[in-house]
Simulated assay, not measured.
Amino acid sequence: MTDPTTKSTPFARCDHVDHHLFAVQPGIPLLDALEHASVYLSCAEALAHQAPTATRPEHSASLRWASQQMLGTARSLVQASVDGLHAAQAGGDA
């Protein structure tokens, strides 16, 4: 088995077009990608806990939005890692 790395994984779909704003890049070592996913999840959790107690409504909405964006990024990092692991186990770039 080759050393597993991420597969390209687009995320953050634009509302009115069939494109994504961002993508996890291929070839990132899985440990690096998963460490970043863990950091994003921790930050999203912290923001989600702060949102209900924000003193201004617009702050609460911004904290929720930021948390959602971090969750989407973390999900994409994990998916890119899973896809990369499957490709490495299959012995190629499948």
Rank of each mutant, 00 (worst) to 15 (best):
T2E: 08
T2C: 00
D3V: 10
P4A: 14
T5G: 02
T5I: 05
T6F: 01
S8L: 12
T9S: 05
T9C: 09
F11C: 05
A12F: 11
A12K: 03
A12W: 13
R13D: 12
R13S: 09
R13I: 09
R13K: 15
R13H: 12
R13F: 15
D15G: 11
D15C: 07
D15R: 10
D18L: 10
D18P: 03
D18Y: 09
H19F: 08
A23N: 03
A23R: 15
P26S: 15
G27K: 06
G27Q: 12
P29S: 13
P29V: 06
P29Q: 11
L30H: 05
L31E: 13
D32E: 11
A33Q: 02
L34Y: 01
E35S: 14
H36A: 09
S38K: 07
Y40R: 06
L41Y: 00
L41V: 12
L41G: 01
L41N: 04
L41P: 02
C43G: 04
C43K: 10
C43Y: 11
C43S: 03
A44P: 01
A44M: 05
A44W: 02
A46S: 13
L47F: 08
L47Q: 06
H49G: 04
Q50I: 02
A51D: 05
A51Q: 03
P52T: 07
P52F: 09
A54V: 02
A54K: 02
A54L: 13
T55M: 14
R56P: 00
E58L: 14
H59A: 15
A61I: 09
A61H: 14
S62V: 01
S62C: 11
W65M: 10
W65E: 14
A66D: 09
S67L: 00
S67R: 10
M70D: 09
L71T: 08
L71K: 12
G72P: 00
T73G: 08
T73Q: 05
R75V: 04
S76Y: 01
S76I: 08
S76W: 08
L77E: 00
L77C: 11
V78H: 10
Q79G: 05
Q79I: 06
A80N: 01
A80Q: 04
A80D: 01
A80E: 10
S81A: 09
S81F: 07
V82L: 15
V82K: 13
D83W: 12
G84P: 00
H86R: 15
A90I: 01
A90R: 14
G91T: 11
G91P: 10
G91A: 09
G92D: 00
G92M: 01
D93P: 00
D93H: 07
D93I: 04
A94H: 12
A94P: 12
